[in-house]
Design a protein around this nucleic acid. Structure first.
Length: 269
DNA sequence: ACTGGATCCTGATCGC
DNA sequence: TGCGATCAGGATCCAG
């Protein structure tokens, strides 16, 4: 379920309970993920004091005094803080006792990962990443420059991590609708001005989603509830056949780059 | 160098 | 109710 806003919400949600505390016990129940959890995960994390929890792209970074974890939630991963006596669920890969709570990594589809940030694999993953969408480095001119020799659909283009990180399938469709740009349009056939609009809409939609996600921070402790941004009103995503809120035209769907995509053929050109 | 497509895995949902 | 087919919010890898 995680797009950038959920990873950000997770980082903000667990940070206050981790920072300043030590990992009292660490247990790996199921090491199998996108890449295996390192064999020395428990040993190396044990008794480490947590210094910070942050996000880069859709990666969660947990820094301790002597090491740092790089984690991705994939399609179905989550971190939850629970009371240590909470019954284990299937697909609870790791249990980390920290203070009076237990941090659990849960991932049914196993597309996520838990790696040491200083490993070759983690370095390689991080080194390919483009700018953060909410940073000043990400702008219309950046998109314009990056797109000049690229003929792929603009939707696939903005979902490319080397171009900009954190734009997933939902917010790609949403930001293109808000910009009036058709998702199938070739990336190199969009003007600098239109990329200016698109960059701004990406920033706005992600910022709004993070705000909504922030309303459910307390739920991480109880291990209940879903992030609030799901209830936010989506313009096009998943609204196939329903009417466009701007022009009443039925919302279309089409597979672009292997992913289902939603748009209004009237409002987006 | 780019691009589209296959691929990893389990669970929820839908049609029959 | 049961069962198989289909699809899912990611991103890497590979063939053309």
């Amino acid at each position: 379920m995680p797009e950038l806003p959920e990873v950000e919400t997770t980082a903000r949600g667990i940070a206050p309970f981790l920072v300043g505390q030590s990992f009292i016990s660490v247990r790996v129940n199921q090491p199998s993920l996108r890449w295996p959890i390192p064999a020395d995960f428990s040993r190396r994390l044990l008794n480490e004091s947590c210094l910070s929890v942050s996000r880069r792209a859709k990666y969660l970074l947990i820094e301790t005094e002597n090491t740092q974890i790089l984690s991705h939630l994939g399609m179905s991963g989550s971190f939850r803080l629970v009371s240590p006596n909470t019954p284990l669920k299937i697909h609870d890969h790791v249990q980390m006792r920290i203070g009076d709570l237990e941090l659990r990594y849960h991932d049914p589809r196993r597309f996520g990962c838990l790696l040491w940030a200083d490993s070759d694999r983690a370095r390689q993953l991080i080194s390919q990443l483009g700018p953060e969408p909410l940073s000043d480095a990400f702008s219309g001119s950046w998109l314009y420059e990056q797109s000049r020799r690229r003929s792929l659909a603009v939707k696939s283009f903005i979902m490319t991590n080397a171009v900009v990180v954190g734009v997933g399938n939902i917010y790609a469709s949403e930001s293109l609708f808000l910009s009036g740009i058709h998702p199938s349009r070739a990336a190199n056939r969009i003007s600098k001005d239109r990329y200016g609009v698109l960059a701004e809409e990406i920033k706005k939609v992600l910022a709004r989603a993070i705000e909504s996600g922030g309303t459910t921070l307390r739920d991480f402790v109880n291990g209940q509830g879903e992030p609030g941004y799901f209830q936010q009103t989506l313009s096009v995503y998943g609204r196939n056949g329903e009417r466009c809120r701007q022009c009443e035209e039925p919302i279309q769907s089409r597979v672009i780059g292997g992913r289902n995509s939603y748009f209004c053929r009237q409002c987006q050109r």
